[in-house]
Simulated scan of single mutants.
Amino acid sequence: MFSSRVALSAAVLVLAAGLSACTPIADVEPAPDAANPDCATVMVSLPSELADQQQRETDSQATTAWGEPSKIILRCGVPVQGPTTEQCATVNGIDWILREDESTWTATTYGREPAVEVIFDPQEVSSSTLLVQLENAISRIEPTRECVSTNDLQLPAQ
C-alpha cells in the first residue's frame, strides 16, 4: 500500500513538472514601484484570458503576460505620467496615454497611482478589446486626475 502511494505521488510530481514546462515563464523587467500594495490589488483582479490570449507566469513582481509567445505584457508600478500632450483615450472610464512604436503600442494609465503599462502588437491584439477587458482590474486604483482636451480648457479672454 505504501509503495503504491509513493509511486502515485511520484507520478503526480512528474506530471506537474511536465505541465509547468509546457508554458515557459516570461522574462519581464519589474517596474520601479512594483512593490506598491495597489499593484497587488490589480494583479489578483486580472483576467486569465485577455483578447483571446491565455495568461502566463512571469519572473518578476507586479507583471504578467498573455499569449505564447507573449502578445501582451502588463507591468504595474511604472512612473506616473504628468500632464502631457500625447494621445489620451478614455475606455470604460479609464484614461490611457497611447504611444505607437514601429511594431508595438504602449498604453499607460493616466491619473492613477501607481500607473499600469500594457505593451502589445496592434497587428495581433485589438487595443479596444484588451483595454475594455482590463477595466475591472485597473479600476481598483482610484483616479486622481483625468485626461482633458483643448475643448475642456478655459482660456483667458483676449
Results as ranks from 00 to 15, higher is better:
residue 2 F to A: 13
residue 3 S to V: 13
residue 9 S to N: 07
residue 9 S to M: 14
residue 12 V to H: 05
residue 12 V to G: 08
residue 12 V to P: 05
residue 13 L to I: 14
residue 17 A to Q: 15
residue 18 G to T: 08
residue 18 G to E: 14
residue 21 A to W: 11
residue 22 C to H: 14
residue 23 T to P: 07
residue 23 T to E: 14
residue 24 P to N: 14
residue 26 A to N: 12
residue 31 A to M: 01
residue 31 A to R: 00
residue 32 P to G: 08
residue 32 P to T: 07
residue 36 N to I: 00
residue 36 N to Y: 09
residue 36 N to E: 09
residue 38 D to K: 04
residue 45 S to A: 13
residue 50 L to C: 09
residue 51 A to F: 03
residue 52 D to T: 14
residue 52 D to Q: 15
residue 58 T to A: 04
residue 60 S to G: 08
residue 60 S to L: 11
residue 65 A to M: 11
residue 67 G to W: 02
residue 67 G to R: 08
residue 68 E to A: 14
residue 68 E to Q: 11
residue 70 S to W: 11
residue 70 S to K: 11
residue 72 I to R: 02
residue 73 I to L: 07
residue 75 R to P: 02
residue 77 G to H: 04
residue 78 V to E: 00
residue 78 V to M: 02
residue 79 P to T: 00
residue 81 Q to H: 01
residue 84 T to S: 06
residue 84 T to K: 00
residue 85 T to N: 12
residue 86 E to W: 01
residue 88 C to Y: 05
residue 91 V to L: 04
residue 92 N to D: 15
residue 93 G to Q: 05
residue 94 I to F: 08
residue 94 I to D: 06
residue 95 D to Y: 01
residue 96 W to Q: 03
residue 98 L to C: 03
residue 104 T to L: 11
residue 106 T to P: 06
residue 108 T to F: 00
residue 109 T to K: 00
residue 112 R to Q: 05
residue 112 R to V: 01
residue 113 E to V: 11
residue 113 E to A: 14
residue 117 E to K: 11
residue 117 E to W: 06
residue 119 I to V: 12
residue 123 Q to S: 15
residue 125 V to W: 02
residue 125 V to D: 06
residue 127 S to C: 03
residue 127 S to T: 14
residue 130 L to Q: 04
residue 135 E to M: 10
residue 135 E to W: 09
residue 136 N to M: 11
residue 136 N to T: 13
residue 137 A to D: 04
residue 138 I to F: 01
residue 138 I to V: 13
residue 139 S to Y: 07
residue 140 R to C: 04
residue 141 I to S: 04
residue 142 E to Y: 08
residue 144 T to C: 05
residue 145 R to Y: 01
residue 148 V to R: 13
residue 149 S to G: 15
residue 150 T to K: 12
residue 152 D to K: 10
residue 153 L to I: 15
residue 154 Q to G: 02
residue 158 Q to W: 10
